[in-house]
């Protein structure tokens, strides 16, 4: 009997000691024995507030909501308990935000920028502000949405400009047509004035290319008309419409610059032929105007459309 008593006693003593030690350790670590500081927060609404709700700093729970009260002024008073070892996180400049994540329970986040600031007085009642994931996402998405709005406005502007009969592109086309017509009429005069068959040939080539370019630009106009239904990739991608348009316009500029050089030569050679010079001067002016307007248009397109190697517009 004594042996049994001893064994049973030993079992109860050791097991109880282990249990008590474990519970004591958990209680100690959970701050049951440590001094607890109580602070009061205020809020206009008690929505999402519950007793036992965690109070966290940088993702770590440092305390809990111990009680909720409604005062005479209809303000919700929230009492939070913070163990002594975490009390240095609560400073006079701390901000208290109720965080409502999309998934999971709400909690109170303490934001303390300066841990060396004065401690928060228990008599002070800081206000609890509100934040939640949806608002945060909207806040973050706002610049992206604004940027997308601006891009859409630019596209609309360009589309309108292209389709406007008085717009820049149409003006270029008209100028190009006028130029072409005038060159076709001045063929014999040119040959006569220049007296250089190679120069005449060069001018003819330029005029033919200008025709090709006109046809291309016309095609682009039609494609731009249908741009509203296009996707981002089709508009801005490497093979999209707008990069093509830019390339073509740059090509057009290059060609017209070449014509400009040729005409300079013509001017120099036929300086003394008054009639020819008069016609050639008109021709030169028409070319100058065309080059200038095409250059302006290309610059404007470059400025307005942020051509990129790859499109990067991402909406939430």
């Amino acid at each position: 009997m004594q042996r049994i008593e001893f064994k049973v006693g030993l079992f109860i003593a050791i097991t109880s000691l282990l249990i008590m030690a474990s519970i004591g350790y958990v209680a100690y670590k959970k701050g049951v024995f440590s001094k607890v500081h109580t602070y009061t927060l205020s809020s206009k609404s008690g929505d999402n507030l519950t007793e036992g709700m965690p109070v966290a700093v940088w993702g770590f729970t440092i305390g809990r909501v111990s009680a909720l009260e409604l005062n005479d002024q209809g303000i919700v008073l929230i009492r939070i308990k913070i163990p002594d070892r975490h009390n240095r996180m609560i400073r006079a400049n701390s901000k208290f935000v109720i965080d409502k994540p999309l998934i999971g329970s709400p909690r109170i986040i303490v934001q303390t920028n300066n841990l060396n600031a004065l401690p928060l007085s228990p008599e002070m009642v800081p206000e609890l502000t509100e934040s939640n994931d949806i608002n945060e996402i909207i806040k973050r998405a706002r610049p992206i949405v604004d940027k997308a709005d601006r891009i859409m406005a630019n596209i609309e502007h360009i589309t309108a400009s292209l389709s406007d009969p008085a717009g820049d592109v149409n003006r270029i086309l008209r100028n190009a047509e006028t130029l072409t017509a005038r060159f076709s009429k001045k063929d014999s005069l040119l040959a006569m004035a220049v007296g250089d068959p190679e120069s005449v040939k060069s001018i003819h080539e330029a005029i033919n290319k200008l025709r090709d370019i006109t046809v291309k630009v016309d095609g682009i106009l039609k494609r731009v008309d249908g741009m509203a239904g296009k996707t981002d990739e089709e508009i801005y991608g490497q093979d999209g419409i707008l990069p093509q348009l830019r390339n073509i316009l740059r090509d057009l500029l290059g060609k017209l610059a070449k014509i400009d050089v040729t005409f300079d030569n013509i001017n120099k050679v036929s300086y003394e032929a008054a009639d020819s010079a008069k016609d050639l001067k008109g021709l030169r002016n028409a070319l100058d105007e065309t080059v200038k307007s095409i250059g302006n248009l290309a610059d404007e397109i470059d400025r307005k459309i942020p051509f990129k190697a790859r499109p990067e517009i991402k909406l939430p």
Partner: peptide, 9 residues
Amino acid sequence: IHQLYFTSV
């Protein structure tokens, strides 16, 4: 004590 001995110990 006997029961605890037989059951637990």
